[in-house]
Amino acid sequence: MKYLKLFFVSILIFLFSCNNKKDHLYGFYYWKTRLSLSESEKTALKKAGLPYVYTRFFDVDKIDGKFQPVGVITKDKSFETAQQIVPTIFVTNRTFLYITKEEIHFLAKSVLDLIQKKTAEYQLKNSGEIQIDCDWTAGTRDDYFAFLQELKKISGKEITCTLRLHQVKDKNLMGIPPVSKVYLMCYSTSSPLENSDKNSILDVRILKNYLSQADDYPIKKIEVALPIYSWGIVTNHLEKHKLINALSDKDLDNPDFRRISANEAEVMKDGFYFGHYLNKGFRIKTEEISDQKLREVVDFLEEKIPQFNIIYYQLDSKFVTGRNFNF
């Protein structure tokens, strides 16, 4: 009888934990210059629970002292989705170096004007939100924050922004952006161009260290951006590195490669591989993120953030086909 009671108690605990498992709606970032959708990408969007797709419109940089839009989007007829578009703008940190108050207003108006122009030109169904992506620093934070406030003032939209891991850990130095919602970028935990045995896309140990005090972050509305992309890091004879996007472990199954480990190989024959000319002796290391690693991150964040949606970076047939997005 004693063991029978323990059995039923165990069952009840299991059922209780299952019933209290948090559900997370999910969506995608779209980060290509030409807006187009393959059938697999359309299928992924239809399955997504969030009614938004976070779409990069253009970058902003300061070149020769002048603000310049870079990589402005174009669109073809295949880009059709029921989701609303959230215009997402990447702004370089140097854009805010030595910027004046008048230039902040000019920059905010120029960004809004170009968003509105592209929205009208391509008949996009935009949401009431504009997201700004910037890796601001302690030296640019005040001007960047002023830009966010000015953009909100002149647009009448909800202005949100991305939040990098170091900006959480060093919040007293980096400041708190004047927005009601942030998007926590849970990737790029280290540089892929350094000699390291870590996964530069996402090292869970590093992430946990940076976010150990995330539950104390003043902005409570936090969405979570998780990586589903992959790449290959090529190292030449001089130990110089370059990236080849969208490579995975299976791409190393090539008769011209010699396997070094599960995710590393050496080129044994000069030739073109993945659109790049690689010499014999070059090494390729692939980095990708498993569902198990994403699950570990989600479990950790559930202890820090009461409720959050997940935005996967990024929507691409190479990364969404056959993937499980329900965590």
Rank of each mutant, 00 (worst) to 15 (best):
T162M: 03
G175E: 08
E158V: 14
V168R: 02
I154K: 04
Q167P: 08
L173V: 11
Y187T: 04
L184T: 00
K171D: 01
C161K: 04
Y183V: 04
E158S: 12
N172I: 12
D170P: 00
Y187Q: 01
S180P: 03
T160L: 10
L173A: 11
C186S: 07
V179Y: 11
E150W: 05
E150C: 06
D170N: 15
E158T: 15
V179E: 02
I176L: 06
G156R: 11
Q149K: 15
P177K: 06
R164N: 05
S155V: 10
K153A: 15
K171E: 09
L173Q: 09
D170L: 14
K157G: 02
P177A: 07
V182S: 02
I154E: 06
E158D: 13
F147Y: 14
T162G: 00
Y187D: 05
L165G: 01
L165M: 15
R164V: 09
I176G: 01
V179D: 07
E150S: 03
R164K: 15
M185V: 11
V179S: 00
I159T: 05
G156K: 08
Y183E: 04
E150R: 09
F147A: 04
R164D: 04
E150H: 05
S155N: 11
C161V: 12
T162I: 03
N172T: 12
P177F: 13
L148M: 08
R164Q: 10
L151K: 07
K169S: 10
I154T: 00
K181D: 03
V168K: 01
K181Q: 14
K152N: 11
E158G: 01
M185S: 02
F147G: 01
L151N: 01
S155R: 11
I154V: 11
Q167R: 06
K152F: 10
E150V: 10
L184K: 00
E158N: 13
I176A: 05
